[in-house]
Design a protein around this nucleic acid. Structure first.
Lengths: 350, 350
DNA sequence: TATTTTTGTGTGTGCGCACACGAAATGTGT
DNA sequence: ACACATTTCGTGTGCGCACACACAAAAATA
């Protein structure tokens, strides 16, 4: 394998000049450039990627801003693991990754954590934008400082984000509806359960609901779709009565759709008779949700490749920083359909 | 990331001593060795593989032996893409990847291509062992030369392979049966179509069939399962008559299971009436198969993450060569359930 | 022609590690 | 006490590249 040094000798120029030609840095006379290019071509030369990687070290640091996970909502653990794994992989490029988490219930936490990250002057940001309004302010700062940023998991429009990595939530909801109907008769009612906060704030949840209802419209299925709002601060007893009385009052309900990762909480609240008769469909293969799949209370989970979301986002950003690869504007990861039998092969990300 | 230099400072020794400890070169007093080891452990230190590769002028090369793809069977294109992508990623470690493909119909081709690869003295092999018997001979050579190897996509037992990367074919078949029944009534007959060659030679196909039939046994579903053998060398007209007469003679058949990636060929042969009434389930999201999903002739495809199979296999082997990471003996990738609606997000690997 | 600006080119240093070489510390025998 | 062997340890160099810096030649300006 030729080296830059050898190419330089061959062309009677210095290594620096070859370097300039190779990286299109400019400042090389036309004549010498041509000469160097000819020799590069002649030997089909390309730089030693090992040496290159070593020399490029310690240049960039990526800041990651995502929600925290806790016992009742483990979802974000998995993207976090993906991020950590990617961080490990790109250490060889000297890229550092700093991840901080915020409280998904508190917009202030989102803002504060962002500013905390900003202190270390990151070369780029990866953000899960749970709060649409607050994101506007955050992004204004980044745009001003010309710091590139990418959205993770939650898709919002109208920003200069480098890319989005996540799921097509609309279609995911659409698929949920299709799966729901594959198991039930046509003349039924269906119930969507979700907190008000999520419906208005969380764009992914909103789109899933849109997709779900759209399936009925598009296929002209005359089923009634009801909505029940359960707030996250409600006590368990309150939730229980709310849900069970609602189901009791609507005996035609044949299936329940939960457009978030918290379906296990509802399973926890529902009376056994409902668990046996109703079709339940929810999102994300968190350990608790998997348990619901295994004990037959939930029929399907739709998973959004949480691990890969984190992993890909970080690698994408690194490729952008290090190699100047511009990613596609939207990267939709597969919509996984999980059932009792295949869920174990998707478990390892928690 | 810590460096040897930093570890040395911390331990009040020279870099040389740390190097000696790291590589068990000996010539270090017990006391200092312990001190150094303690600090290495404390920081969970490991050498920068890139710098290491540069200093060593590492020249690992991984040989990859997989089936070729052609217009009628595109399956292997996708693992190949994954392999190429991984090859790009691991260039930074100085590892080269050489991929050669063989004719899946001809065992000689398998053997010959193997020997072709062997010529360049590879540090390791990645093999898709389509032919069980021939693999025995191949592996004997590798064992003799102490060249590590791992199996890709097709799982066979009784070898010293470093690892296996692929799918749990039995469960995949099991899931196919479950999906089949979600769409049909209980008192039906089902048909498995496959070539004799594949059933006896290709272990993945064999296991899928096992899993499929096992579902009926385990759940005590009294359906009759029939098998029709179609040889790949049969002409299209012959296939057409074979299939359609068979279906005609067995009017109770409600679903057809094709345990290979060639379901599109059967769709091509089946009369329209059958396409409309029968449930078809096959494997792999090749472009032709996706087309069948989109035009509603096929209900489900089961996908085995072909791209990731290739990608992971190569990266795993590289980690083994470069960092001495020993992988798990079996790495089962997710069993993807594909339907019309989510298939587009799995399309990009072809 | 003298002086400033622009353009073109070479040199030096560091990235983190592997390994050769040589120096110091310790041990052995007389 | 000495000379000498052996064990233990530190230093220096190179792997190939990226990039900052210095410097010379050419062009532009006065």
């Amino acid at each position: 394998m030729k080296t830059i040094k050898e190419i330089a000798q061959e062309a009677n120029v210095s290594e620096g000049t070859v370097d300039r030609v190779l990286h299109n840095r400019g400042g090389v006379s036309k004549k010498t450039e041509e000469k160097v290019r000819a020799i590069i071509k002649e030997y089909n030369f390309s730089v030693n990627p090992v040496a290159s990687a070593l020399a490029l070290k310690n240049k960039f640091n990526i800041a990651v801003l995502i929600p925290a996970h806790n016992k009742s909502d483990l979802f974000w653990k998995s993207p976090n693991l993906g991020i950590t794994k990617a961080a490990e992989d790109i250490k060889t490029f000297g890229t550092q990754v700093q991840t901080l988490t915020y409280n998904q219930q508190k917009p202030e936490s989102y803002i504060n954590t962002f500013h905390e990250l900003l202190k270390s002057n990151p070369s780029a940001f990866i953000i899960a934008p749970s709060f649409s309004e607050e994101t506007r302010n955050i992004v204004a700062i980044l745009d001003d400082k010309k710091i590139p940023y990418l959205f993770l998991n939650i898709e919002i429009e109208g920003f200069n984000n480098l890319s989005f990595v996540g799921q097509d939530s609309f279609t995911a909801g659409y698929i949920a509806a299709k799966l729901m109907l594959s198991k039930t008769t046509e003349s039924s009612e269906f119930l969507i359960i979700q907190s008000r906060k999520n419906i208005t704030n969380n764009n992914a949840v909103f789109k899933r609901i849109e997709g779900f209802t759209n399936y009925f419209v598009k296929n002209e299925i005359p089923c009634k779709i009801l909505t029940l709002e359960i707030e996250s601060q409600d006590s368990k007893t309150l939730r229980k009565t709310k849900i069970n009385t609602y189901l009791n009052n609507h005996p035609d309900i044949k299936g329940v759709f939960v457009p978030s990762s918290r379906i296990h909480m509802l399973v926890d609240c529902m009376a056994d008779t409902y668990l046996k008769t109703l079709e339940l469909i929810g999102f994300d293969n968190t350990p608790q949700n998997i348990e619901c799949l295994k004990n037959n209370s939930v029929s399907f989970l739709i998973s959004q490749k949480p691990f890969n979301q984190g992993y890909n986002a970080v690698k994408l950003m690194n490729d952008y920083l290090v190699k100047n690869n511009i990613p596609s504007h939207k990267i939709y990861l597969p919509i996984d359909i999980l059932i009792k039998e295949n869920v174990i092969y998707n478990e390892n990300s928690y």
